[in-house]
Design a protein around this nucleic acid. Structure first.
Length: 598
DNA sequence: GCCGTTTTCGGCCCGACTGTTTTCAGTCG
């Protein structure tokens, strides 16, 4: 079994153990192991053969055995038995908000619930409300969760989440009680998809802020409203959380709620190593339980919640920024995009964090479409829009003839377009230089949709897969590699063909494609369309270290899609890329030289 | 189940909110 399959099984084991009410740390060990395996960069077979699997952090003796067994035999008795002991429909119950392993176990043991359907019936019959520890509200919430589970479980593409967050953030910042406001969470970290929105506000008077937040336009439902935290469900199903903290806690809270969870765990461990305790409240000297017991015996018995557990205690650092928190733990500032526990803490400790690419580093983009194929804007309109964005150059790469569904250009139309582009450049109408390219289909057998004579007339050539998605991984990988070996090819478009939340990537061995790109001196595109963000950020760090050159391309089919390059920059940052790794961080003259046009 | 030059056993990040309770468990992030 391959690595991805084993990762899935380890994750599945974690879920099953959760339902069985196993030790939470054991469950975490399986999830950690899955993640450790997933980010293993070497070939799994080689690591196993070399006996080095146990050296991977998070993979101990038991997991070495299980992973090896799965790798060699495709089967694992432990997993088979575990799976058989849990009814099939049970795992889906974990998706219902408010239901965790303990409640699910109770529902199963007392009412025989083992699927969404039987749970719904039990709620409707009133049996759930009668259970100890349950009640009418719980039953109602479960029913609501069942009714909305598709919308509630849905993730959202980063761009959409960003667009939803902007007006909320602006609204918060306009309130007079608000000193500072930021969005945190996976949105701030630039994940390709976002589960919910997290807003952080610094203020001494939370009340009116909570009122505004829970009653703003677009709120369908208020799911929580407290003194420091409120949650709402927006009309499109997106959940938004707001936390209001005193100004002196703002950056601790911002760091905490930016995550990722794994990054936070590492940061807290690091704090503990220094005799400190890090939380959203601040950074404090580690204490024993004196404080808590004192509070119980004390005279003023406030409700324990809503009280800062650290009381009047002074944090060891007065954080005026997140950088101050990192500094207190002997780390350089780590940009949010890197906070995934993928080596950023070690790099920050050594002072080896990359200087990440920014929007301002981009001087132009390749791979865009016009009305000649399936774009919605003309050549002139696209050029004007690119110039308005401050670009020095704009690459036009309309589809080739095999993409007939997208009105792909044949040889004749392509020649006419090239001529038109040359004439436009010569006319001096725009300062933005247009590059004449093509997005040439990689045919099923790996040959290209145009012959060499035609390819030679182009300024550059993007090659992409647009059909026969169901090839085997082996065939698809060979198909793409064959295209990359072609001398007139400049770059590979959207490597996996995925459409986020819509279409799975086709089967392809990404490391092998990266090897081929490196071996042949080709670029791999970071397709910046919010639906694609392909090649995935998880592969860029390692690939760029090996010298792979990236091109950030909006794949714009309309003028207002050119700005998608920003999503590409964010994704590139997440992949640890600097401007040196990216072709379109070079000025026009340098790009022309690279393309052999200088 | 993982991990460790303070430990091979006993820890494992930390706090808020809800709904159910009468002092707290479960869930969530």
């Amino acid at each position: 079994m391959d690595k991805a399959g084993i990762v899935d099984i380890l994750e599945s084991i974690a879920e099953l153990l959760e339902l069985k009410g196993e030790n939470p740390f054991k469950i975490r060990a399986y999830s950690n192991g899955a993640r450790a395996l997933e980010s293993l960069e070497k070939d799994l077979g080689e690591v196993i053969a070399a006996g080095e699997l146990g050296e991977v952090k998070g993979i101990g003796k038991a997991l070495v055995d299980k992973i090896t067994t799965l790798y060699e035999t495709d089967e694992l008795e432990f997993y088979t038995k575990l799976k058989a002991s849990v009814p099939e429909g049970m795992i889906a119950l974990l998706d219902i908000p408010g239901l965790g392993p303990k409640k699910i176990k109770k529902l199963h043991d007392t009412l025989g619930v083992e699927s969404i359907e039987s749970l719904q019936a039990a709620c409707e019959s009133g049996k759930v409300a009668e259970l100890d520890g349950f009640g009418k509200k719980t039953a109602d919430n479960i029913l609501r969760g069942i009714a909305n589970r598709e919308a509630y479980a849905a993730r959202h593409r980063w761009w959409d989440a960003h667009e939803a967050a902007v007006p909320i953030l602006e609204g918060l910042r306009k309130l007079k009680e608000v000193e500072q406001a930021e969005a945190g969470g996976s949105l701030r970290r630039g994940m390709e998809t976002v589960g919910d929105l997290d807003f952080l506000v610094a203020s001494t008077t939370p009340g009116p802020i909570m009122d505004w937040f829970t009653s703003q336009e677009g709120v369908r439902e208020v799911t929580a409203k407290g003194e420091t935290k409120s949650s709402v469900r927006l009309d499109d199903g997106l959940q938004a959380d707001l936390r209001v903290v005193p100004p002196e806690q703002f950056f601790f809270a911002l760091h905490h709620f930016t995550g990722s969870k794994d990054h936070n765990v590492r940061m807290r461990q690091r704090a503990l190593e220094r005799g400190l305790s890090l939380s959203e409240w601040g950074l404090f000297k580690t204490q024993n339980d004196e404080r808590r017991t004192q509070k119980k015996d004390g005279e003023e018995e406030k409700k324990p919640r809503q009280v800062n557990p650290h009381g009047d205690e002074k944090p060891v650092v007065d954080a005026k920024s997140e950088a101050d928190i990192f500094k207190a733990l002997d780390l350089r500032y780590i940009p949010p995009e890197l906070r995934e526990d993928r080596g950023e803490i070690e790099a920050a400790e050594q002072g080896e964090l990359p200087e990440l690419v920014t929007d301002e580093d981009i001087f132009g983009v390749f791979h865009n479409h016009t009305t000649a194929s399936d774009g919605r804007a003309t050549l002139d309109e696209m050029t004007q829009a690119a110039q308005d964005l401050g670009f020095e150059y704009l690459g036009i790469a309309d589809h080739s003839k095999a993409s007939f569904q997208a009105s792909g250009l044949d040889e004749e139309r392509l020649a006419a377009q090239i001529e038109k582009i040359r004439a436009l450049n010569d006319s001096g109408k725009f300062t933005c230089r247009v590059l004449a390219g093509s997005e040439v289909d990689i045919l099923k057998d790996g040959t290209l949709d145009f012959d060499d004579g035609v390819l030679k007339t182009l300024d550059y050539c993007v090659v992409s897969v647009h059909n026969a998605f169901s090839l085997s991984e082996d065939d698809m990988t060979k198909r793409i590699i064959k295209a990359l070996e072609h001398e007139h090819v400049t770059m590979l478009g959207h490597l996996t063909g995925r459409l986020l939340l819509q279409r799975e990537p086709y089967a392809v061995n990404i490391p092998k494609v990266i090897d081929a790109a490196l071996a042949n001196g080709k670029i791999i595109e970071l397709n910046a369309s919010p639906w694609r963000l392909d090649m995935d950020w998880r592969f860029w760090k390692k690939a760029a270290e090996r010298g792979l050159l990236c091109a950030i391309n909006p794949d714009a089919h309309a003028t207002d899609q050119l700005k998608y390059y920003r999503a590409g920059v964010l994704t590139a940052r997440k992949g640890w890329l600097t401007k040196d790794n990216i072709l379109n961080c070079r000025k026009l003259a340098s790009v022309l030289e690279y393309l052999g046009l200088g």
